[in-house]
Design a protein around this nucleic acid. Sequence first.
DNA 1: GTGAAAGCGCTAACAG
DNA 2: CTGTTAGCGCTTTCAC
Lengths: 351, 351
Amino acid sequence: MDCPGNEQGLRYGGVTSLSDVAQAAGVHPGTASRALNPQTRHRVSAETAQRVQEAADRLGYQPNSVARALRTRRSHMVAILIPDLTNPLFPPIVRGVEEVLAPAGYSAILVNTDNDEAKEGHLFAELRGRQCDGFIVATARREHPLLEQAAAEGVAMVLVNRVTDRRPASSVTADEAGGVHAAIAHLSSLGHRRIAHLAGPQNLSTGLIRYRAFVDACDRAGLGPDDRPVVVCDSFSETAGEAAMHRLLRESVRPTAVFASNDLLALGALDATRAAGLRCPQDLSVVGFNDMPFLSRMSPALTTVHVPQRTIGAEAARMLLQSLEDPGPPRSLLLGCELVVRASTGPAPRN
Amino acid sequence: MDCPGNEQGLRYGGVTSLSDVAQAAGVHPGTASRALNPQTRHRVSAETAQRVQEAADRLGYQPNSVARALRTRRSHMVAILIPDLTNPLFPPIVRGVEEVLAPAGYSAILVNTDNDEAKEGHLFAELRGRQCDGFIVATARREHPLLEQAAAEGVAMVLVNRVTDRRPASSVTADEAGGVHAAIAHLSSLGHRRIAHLAGPQNLSTGLIRYRAFVDACDRAGLGPDDRPVVVCDSFSETAGEAAMHRLLRESVRPTAVFASNDLLALGALDATRAAGLRCPQDLSVVGFNDMPFLSRMSPALTTVHVPQRTIGAEAARMLLQSLEDPGPPRSLLLGCELVVRASTGPAPRN
DNA sequence: GTGAAAGCGCTAACAG
DNA sequence: CTGTTAGCGCTTTCAC
């Protein structure tokens, strides 16, 4: 029976090492190394190369990446830092990252930070200790001394869906401002003249950017400050959205439309709307942001701004690999967003 | 300014090594190692220990896990194999795994296999080469020669949400049969006497188990073979569910209820139902499986069997860590499921 | 084109 | 209690 790793030359534990292969092929380990590495195979006679390759196959040799990493100082591992995998925004991003990393021979270590600064610092240090070659960071806090320092030290890093206020690092982001403008233009064209904003946490880059873009877009649409009430939520969650919406509905003059800083906030807002006995979209229109999966199946199907999550992940990975091969100055990639109109928006009700 | 790693003793590249710390503390690297490792700290004088610790802190020392792993043959890395992170079933499982791994000092490498055997074999070999200490495998093919061989070789491994036909490896699974029985009992109690099954792929453990349990439950409910038509889907996806449902609805005698092998199939079935001009649940009841996130917001809110995904992940991780500390015979943990009744099921229509 | 030897950073035996 | 030494498995100079 052909059972790899079951011949003489077997190391205890069933693992075949390079010297086993070398011995089996009758060459020096150094030569075996050269023969097996595509980069250096040409420095070895075709005949030897083949003999070594055959021995390796026969023994089921699998190179020990740890030893290789120690020697070459390249682990071929990339760390992905996200706030919470359970937030439906992130799985597509992570998948996009892996789609690019895997074929390039890189593996991804995934960690959840819960946007907790201490936790993040901890994890980051640990991952550096693991000799990760690069970092894809999708946590969105604006202030980020650790990352800034790391970037300054030349650690390869791509920021996703977020921008630091200073920009020492590369990033790939959605054109959030563009998306916000499209959303507000849509509401405006439906006749809405009083549009509220459920803003995300202002210490998160997305929260702030979308808030600013909202104000800007309302200005352009000719809405005065009183016609664009804002409630800031303390997290991007359904419960926060629901609470914020309740607060909003208590105000004397009700808005006819709500632009939420992300889909989860919007879903919470819908709950509050329903609880208040209002119908969406007849009494109140709601727009979200991100276009997380399955939104079209919800009731009502949520109008939102589509963010190309998988592409963002893939591009971030590409950018990281590139800067690993040949480090250069930071780059920023901006990907377009598109408004997806569904059932949660309609004409403004007449007073 | 206090800038770690910026003193003399600094290695090129800004990384501080153990000998730098040792030198700064005026001790031998071996001693520094002992002082810094909680396991061996007691073998060193309290005074030295503190001096070394201070030097380490001052220099911002971060141990090189790669070197450590090479020496100790423990990488403190665990691989998670899942079919597709984009399937909403998996993020909670992965999160649960990480919740347990991280505090224990383990990192998780995540890979998507798309249930592709070749890809999986490839990735698995690569991960073994990376010296992962253990594997959490959530891919559900029943036949799995690679894994079986690995398990036989003593590779630490926990299977999640799946069982191999032979059982050389540990596993954590939901009580799927129990869940199926609850679902069918529910439908039966609503008066349904003709219940169809949208079965999952029969080469996947979940697909087969749920199918068998369905047949069994129908028997107990007193339904004859003709009263429980089955359509097998070739993937656990919405499109497959939709196609299967269309096929079902073309049959002469229509079922009054459908039990789908998972939520995605159920969602697809709902599409087909709507397209055929039937209302759910008035004309047809639908039950899913898994209770993936946001189901309660869909229209109609799907009745389904709740699987404790996060718990499954956490328990799998615990089990893996345990078997890493002290390998023993395989264990199997079965976690209870609960039927969640929502709006997609109702009384059987009268003929 | 191939062998010899050094060394990545760490830990674990072994001395003393 | 601490210093010394060897070596994990690999790559990479340097000789020949």
